[in-house]
């Protein structure tokens, strides 16, 4: 497990980091938590000429809620911090459900949410969560910052839209209107395994009525799947056994799983259906379930 030769830089300002990426001219990689990149280096699946370690950049290790309820996660905010977050625990159930399911405790100590989005692994849990929540990524380059909706940020397996001299500095979850509900479930053979299938569900409710819904799927396609049709089917009415079953069916149809040693395509689709149904049933107020 010996990587190819590379140059290593650890700049202390974001401007220096961007300048180094520019020097690297596409042959440079940003190192944050390193939980995906370092294994790729050791296996020689990735062989960049330059590694730009951003761990010394000041002011990126935060997550916070703005007064309006917008949640912001800095590029050096570790999964473990999100797992322990009272902000997520009290305000954002989908993220709070996902945080303890990211990889294993060792990975969570180092890995970052923003890094996970950039890595764009179709098995990445956060990409589904942020997609379901309609979040975006803030990218910073030599000419300033731009916002990129996460659905457009990930362009395919292990591909994102960042220019080679841009750094993703923040992920943003927009402020909800009304009350929030949702959850994240994933089936894995063992803690730290890639998901056999995972489902993120995020709702905004006004009373019993769903005003916004997002459903996204992990590990059942070439990249994160936005099951928009399934989500849309929930909007405008209350959660009922029928609407839940319908949305779960549509989510299963949106999945594009491949059969592999984690399970057959049919099984994975079945898990998507079951998990969407389970999350929505849990969310559904008990009074309505009784009715």
């Amino acid at each position: 497990m010996y990587p190819s030769r590379f140059r290593y830089e650890a700049p202390r300002s974001i401007d220096d980091a961007i300048a180094l990426l520019r020097q690297g001219a596409g042959e440079a990689k940003v190192l944050a938590g390193g939980q995906s990149l370092v294994p790729l280096l050791k296996l020689r699946f990735a062989a960049p000429e330059l590694l730009v370690d951003i761990n010394n950049l000041p002011g990126l290790d935060y997550h916070r809620a703005d007064p309006d309820g917008t949640i912001r996660i800095g590029a050096l905010c570790r999964h473990a911090e999100l797992e322990r977050s009272t902000i997520l625990a009290t305000r954002q159930p989908t993220m709070a459900a996902a945080a303890p399911l990211i990889a294993d405790p060792v990975v969570r100590n180092r890995g970052t949410l923003v890094g996970s989005l950039c890595h764009a692994d179709p098995q990445g849990d956060w990409a589904s969560v942020v997609t379901a929540l309609g979040g975006h990524v803030v990218a910073q380059g030599a000419n300033g910052r731009r916002n990129i909706p996460v659905a457009q940020f990930v362009t395919g397996p292990f591909q994102n839209v960042l220019a080679y001299d841009e750094i993703a500095v923040e992920a943003v979850i927009p402020a909800p209107k009304g009350t929030v509900a949702g959850g994240y479930l994933k089936l894995e053979r063992r803690v730290g395994d890639f998901a056999t299938a995972g489902t993120a569900v995020a709702l905004e409710m006004s009373g019993a009525v769903v005003t916004r819904a997002g459903i996204a799927l992990t590990g059942v396609g070439g990249s994160t799947i936005d099951a928009a049709e399934a989500a849309q089917a929930l909007v405008g009415g209350p959660l009922t056994a029928d609407s839940i079953a319908h949305a779960a069916d549509l989510a299963a149809q949106a999945a594009q799983p491949r059969s592999d040693h984690r399970g057959s395509a049919d099984y994975k689709r079945h898990i998507v259906r079951t998990f969407v149904e389970r999350i929505l049933t849990r969310v559904q107020p008990s009074t309505e379930r009784a009715a």
């Binding site: 056999t196 491949r258 592999d260 040693h261 399970g263 057959s264 099984y267 079945h270």
Partner: peptide
């Protein structure tokens, strides 16, 4: 006894035998 194998036995009501296949579509 991976979950998909148990599920297959439960729903298809047949034995699930041999090494887990390396399935491809």
């Amino acid at each position: 006894l991976l979950p998909d194998r148990v599920y297959e036995a439960l729903t298809q009501r047949h034995d699930v035998s041999g090494a887990p296949p390396v399935r491809t579509d």
